[in-house]
């Protein structure tokens, strides 16, 4: 209990204890946040228990998924989630950081502001609408233009083998990229704005060109914050459900080719949970949900810690 609270409590001691009741009520509401997290983990663990008992570690190493036979292995979904999010994040990071640098350091203030608010506006478009665009506009374009080109020129690589389906891993990577770029860009922008003006001026005073200033003063200062933004984007990517479900082709297979249809953890839950008839089937889907929850918790906690470390540095360093 802080000093302030003791003073407060002493002041009203002996009178109607509204303050204590009020504190209790607000605390109760605040605690629901922790309660929800605990309920999430516990509730899902209980539901997933039958599948855990039945399959053990084979659940994550097996790749046979057959609701009729009652045999469940989640590896294709884990593979699909990891590959799609990892490749999307690798492609999205340089683009996002480049855009954030353009907004904060290069563009005239008004243009930068306009681009930033456009990016933020587009970050608000719901997943299902990106999915609609993906399946009606992007997938046919991939099938007719991009994929035949890739097959013709890079077909010798295992990455681009097979017929052009349009929907598949490549489409999922594209759509995830489009959706996480705004998030990474806007957080990176905030991080870059937090770089003290004095640091930049020092670099320029030493004769640095604009790029050298960015590379030597701006980026190192914001490094952990940018890393936090990227990891936060990864969390979004791995939990991205609707748009991915609509363009990935929903086929549980492990294939090296980016043109082949695949499947992700959130997608299989979205597609099968409402229709799961056997107890074991819904339990297996719950276990996938539990793995997804564990992954996103680890990712988010890491990202928060990184971003917090920059924010605390920022309050010491001052803002431009």
């Amino acid at each position: 209990m802080s000093h302030d609270e003791e003073v407060r409590d002493a002041r009203f001691a002996g009178r109607f204890d509204g303050d204590r009741i009020f504190k209790g009520i607000t605390l109760g509401f605040a605690l629901t946040v922790i309660l929800i997290l605990l309920l999430m983990a516990a509730g899902m663990a209980v539901e997933a228990l039958p599948a855990m008992k039945r399959f053990g570690w084979k659940f994550v190493s097996g790749s046979d998924w057959d609701a009729v036979q009652g045999s469940f292995g989640a590896l294709p979904y884990i593979w699909g989630s990891i590959v799609s999010s990892a490749l999307a994040i690798i492609a999205a990071t340089p683009l996002s950081v480049g855009t954030a640098i353009f907004i904060t350091e290069l563009a005239p203030r008004k243009l930068g502001g306009a681009i930033a608010s456009l990016v933020e506006l587009l970050a608000a478009i719901p997943s299902v609408i990106y999915g609609l665009w993906g399946v009606v506009v992007m997938a046919p374009w991939l099938q007719k233009t991009v994929e035949p080109f890739l097959i013709e020129h890079f077909g010798f690589l295992p990455l681009f083998r097979g017929p052009p389906y349009g929907v598949g891993m490549l489409a999922a990577i594209f759509i995830i990229m489009i959706m996480i770029i705004p998030i990474i860009t806007s957080i990176t922008k905030e991080v870059l704005l937090a770089v003290p003006q004095s640091q930049k001026e020092a670099a320029v005073a030493l004769g640095a060109t604009k790029w050298e200033m960015i590379r030597m003063a701006v980026l190192p200062y914001g490094r952990s914050g940018i890393l936090g933004a990227v990891i936060l984007g990864l969390g979004r990517a791995i939990g991205e459900t609707m748009a991915v479900t609509m363009v990935i082709g929903n086929t549980p297979q492990i294939s090296l080719s980016l043109l082949d249809p695949a499947y992700t953890m959130p997608s299989v839950i979205a597609n099968e949970f409402a229709e799961a008839t056997s107890k074991l089937h819904s339990s297996a889907l719950m276990e996938i949900g539990l793995i997804l929850l564990a992954l996103t918790l680890i990712i988010n906690i890491t990202a928060r810690v990184l971003i917090w470390s920059v924010t605390s540095k920022q309050s010491a360093g001052g803002r431009r």
């Binding site: 802080s2 899902m44 939990g239 949900g289 929850l293 996103t296």
Partner: peptide, 30 residues
């Protein structure tokens, strides 16, 4: 300023990063 408050604050940030499909699974169970 108390420890509990920062735990709650942190939980809220983490909760907002949980994929919404998992929220659906929780509502289904509850």
């Amino acid at each position: 300023g108390n420890r509990l408050a920062s735990v709650i604050r942190f939980s809220a940030d983490v909760l907002s990063g949980v994929p919404s499909i998992i929220t659906g699974l929780v509502a289904y169970t509850l």
